[in-house]
Design a protein around this nucleic acid. Structure first.
Lengths: 203, 203
DNA sequence: GTCTATATTGTGATAGAC
DNA sequence: GTCTATCACAATATAGAC
């Protein structure tokens, strides 16, 4: 109930985020955003000149919440195994709070791939250090010899995909039992690291 | 160059598929589909009454190409290990030919989740037999004891996600080197089964 | 800053000639 | 079946009062 929380610009951004993330840019309606914010369309254009501008504000925030958090993995004095455990936990927690974020970001990026390059630079996203750390531990004989990038993408895949595919998994595998899905996701916090670590450990 | 290949309805469906898959339902324009097919908008409405009808035709085909193929894994006299190897190869080949299919299907499903249920029934998709087969091999002591569903979702994640996340992977990890991405994907045909089999094998 | 009313454009859909 | 022309409405955007 602070002033900052109820000023109009914040209200609009919150409403826009909700609608854009759910419907995508093309599916979102300015009217719906206005309704969601409890104001009228004209005000949207007063604060943000165009739909594109409003979208960019939302997307940039979503993107900078999504991608960099995924890239910047914790303290660098941890081993690869420890980082994998912590990453899985962190990512799944993030997506539990924002279950529609993955499909939103992925869809909008596929709609405008070149846009990515700008955003990456703006948000200072760079190739993750974990790749070279994995390579180092391979060289030291601590990890099975396999391409580090494959390992990283496997980790990201297993953490993110289930949220993007939620309707299918829920519909086909779980007879629309939402509780079952939540349990399944919670279980993955431990299962994913266990799975990966077993796969990359030396026999 | 057969008659069937150049009749108008087929032309329209091919054009619509191209546009819908790339832009999504909301982003697709009837005008663009008409242009792509080399005809005019009126003809679209002559063959398919509404945009929705045209979309359904396209989506049903995409969905019935996508999901059931993923569910119906090969000959049932194979072991789980063999099936995993064959599945990874088949899925990745499918997505290499239709790289935008995953994000298209996932996005449209998130836009209209309940629609899934109908399609599943129409296309006769059911919980995959592999789940019970995995459980059986666990009971027989051939596979590490872990939830079969987690294994299945891991397989699907690793095969599908890289295509959905192509812009990010390409932009961040590969400096937009398309060749590198293709090599990476090709590599996964062997790496994914190796990874999974190691993870689920008894020590 | 916020509203109502309105302009402007985009887009799905139809009418009707050929 | 295929086209041109046009309608009808939805959606973004702006004007102008308060």
């Amino acid at each position: 109930m602070q002033e900052k929380d109820t000023n109009t610009e914040t209200l609009i951004l919150e409403a826009a985020k909700k609608v854009f993330v759910l419907k995508g840019f093309d599916g979102a309606r300015m009217q719906e955003i206005a309704d969601e914010a409890g104001i009228n369309k004209a005000l949207l254009h007063y604060y943000f000149r165009k739909k594109e501008k409003l979208f960019e504000a939302v997307f940039n925030e979503a993107f900078s919440k999504f991608v960099p958090k995924i890239w910047k993995i914790q303290r660098s004095d941890q081993t690869v195994f420890e980082k994998i455990e912590e990453a899985a936990e962190q990512y799944i927690n993030l997506f539990k709070e924002n279950p529609h974020l993955p499909i939103f970001v992925l869809h909008e990026l596929s709609r405008n791939s070149e846009y990515v390059v700008n955003l990456l630079q703006t948000n200072g996203v760079m190739p993750p250090l974990i790749v070279s750390q994995i390579q180092k531990e391979i060289d030291e004989g601590k990890i099975e010899n396999m391409p580090p990038l494959q390992i990283l993408v496997n980790l990201l895949s297993m953490c993110i995909f289930p949220f993007a595919a939620r309707p299918i998994i829920l519909g086909i595998l779980m007879n629309n039992d939402v509780q079952a899905f939540d349990t399944f996701i919670e279980q993955r916090k431990k299962e994913i690291p266990k799975f990966i670590i077993k796969a990359i450990s030396k026999k």
